[in-house]
Design a protein around this nucleic acid. Structure first.
Lengths: 146, 146
DNA sequence: AAATTGAGTTTACATCCGTAAACGTAAGAA
DNA sequence: TTCTTACGTTTACGGATGTAAACTCAATTT
């Protein structure tokens, strides 16, 4: 059985590295360092540390290529994004999630196709949507003064 | 001028405390500790630490009430939620945000009213939505192989 | 072959966070 | 008034994170 790294946690700084590798599909450290030095004022050593941690965490795979390595993602970008968002939302009051998402959707730049897709997803939910979602901030059986 | 604490960062564990206070509008430590001991297996000391940190951070205000304090939120719940989500999204590839939100909306439990409201927000965006949102994972001027 | 370069590894260190015990002190009980 | 309770504060400590210098070698250059 494999190491089943389905629960890799990626920190903010590490996320920047992953985005490069996700976008390029694969990259050597030189490429990653060059690109990130342009975006942030990180020293090469800092970026090396981040790459090293991501490899140790099982977020990046390495393939020997002569003297250096080629790094490839071991976790899926879309899944990582989905998980991060869901995790964040799950930590918030269930009753207020809808409003927050409305604010987010309002402020975010989305493509025409995305907007249509989102409307579609929501339309499908309408029939089965409950009248209201209860606040889950207090333990079971407590007064809800939301 | 006041201390302008508009950028208070709340950690995961602290978020649990804030949810209690947000929901109750105000609470003394006894109440907070009792409620959180039911939800988590945190020792009272742990919860005291979290409360203390939130006060120091400027997320909670204190009002003397005889021997103890009454804690009230100094930051708005909905704003905190919005900011947390937007911050999270801003750290992800712009091109993939739409898809991720679709997954989130699909999985999340939302009230009928929320769904309608969300559809409304999206419908208003449709006319001005761009054909596509570019990937912003690489520095300006790089190839985009997304 | 010797010197140099550079990729990956090790070490460093301050801060934040989760988790919690210990303590000081004022209020309430005896 | 003295003892006790309990609230808020101080101290603690390991792990994660941001940030980065130093070091080890193997490959490349001279």
């Amino acid at each position: 059985m494999a190491t089943t790294e389905l629960t890799v946690t990626i920190s903010d700084a590490e996320w920047r590295v992953m985005r490069i590798v996700w976008t390029l599909k694969e990259a050597d450290s030189r490429t990653i360092i060059d690109l990130l030095e342009q975006q942030h004022d990180w020293k090469p050593a800092t970026i090396k540390t981040l790459i090293g941690r991501l490899v140790k965490k099982g977020a990046l795979a390495t393939t020997k290529n002569g003297r250096q390595f080629i790094y490839t993602p071991l976790i899926d970008e879309q899944s990582a994004m989905d998980t991060a968002l869901i995790t964040e939302l799950n930590q918030m009051c269930a009753m207020h999630r809808g409003t927050s998402l409305a604010h987010v959707l309002d402020q975010l730049e989305l493509s025409h196709d995305d907007v249509e897709n989102l409307i579609d997803v929501l339309q499908k939910k309408l029939p089965t949507a409950p009248t209201m979602v209860d606040c889950d901030c207090l333990p079971e059986g407590c007064e809800r003064s939301c």
